[in-house]
Design a protein around this nucleic acid. Structure first.
Lengths: 127, 127
DNA sequence: GACAGCCTACGACACCTGTAGTAGATTCCT
DNA sequence: AGGAATCTACTACAGGTGTCGTAGGCTGTC
């Protein structure tokens, strides 16, 4: 897979990307509607600005469909997650993942099912 | 403990904070030296600016010692970690911690010792 | 006591991000 | 056809962050 790194995304831009990840390719107006549903009341042109900028950054692309451009994500949530997590890891734990996992397990809540899942995963790590 | 939230820290500011966490209270000049050691070549006044701004944000404080101000962190690495992790969780996983732990376990490396440690921790979660 | 060196206070500036208004082109409805 | 609704392209702008330079004050050393 190609490496594209270095793409910085602001919090609001990420919210737009999430809309695309979760509800697929759509027009500016539709993205705006989804954002509004999520309590993010931004103007139409604001959404347009975000999408335009993100297209320049290469994280979304657009195709003219009928009368309006339809935007779609060009990066997956996993790719973004990986980068963000990595960066957080580097900034706080010198890149070591274990402390973060410890932190999460100690500070966040998990359902029994999730715990079981984690336990299974750990078992597999026992190479 | 008081809640102080909402304090935003840039990447460079965080680097300064790390220096204070790792080598204790020190002067601007000393912080600058530590940053240089870590490959971050910033000017003296840049470091001063960071520390001044961070003092206004309340994350560091200073005391005049002899001839120069000595700065020290007023927030712990744990506090910052908690906020950052939380924010990342909200932005990518709707606040759910499990997916992130899964992600970490699947994508990052752990030593046998760390795995054992995690396993013990999970056992404790079994209420 | 005068100069060199370090210290802090301010002011600057560029770039990024969040937000939006306006204008011109296109489409749709009646 | 003509006005209304859309859409996209620009422009703008404030606040935050990364980076410094300059000026003025204090100190320490001959």
């Amino acid at each position: 897979m190609m490496a594209k790194r270095e793409v910085e995304l602001g919090e609001a831009e990420l919210a737009v990307l999430r809309v695309l990840w979760e509800t697929g390719p759509q027009t500016v107006r539709e993205v705006m509607a989804r954002l509004h549903e999520r309590g993010r009341k931004v103007a139409y042109t604001t959404v347009l600005t975000f999408l335009t900028r993100m297209e320049q950054k290469g994280v979304v692309s657009s195709d003219k469909d009928e009368h309006a451009y339809v935007y779609r994500a060009r990066v997956t949530k996993e790719q973004v997650a990986k980068t963000r997590v990595r960066s957080l890891l580097d900034q706080l734990y010198d890149g070591a993942a274990a402390p973060m996992v410890l932190h999460l397990i100690e500070n966040e809540r998990f359902t029994d099912e999730e715990i079981a899942r984690l336990r299974r995963l750990l078992k597999e790590l026992d190479s």
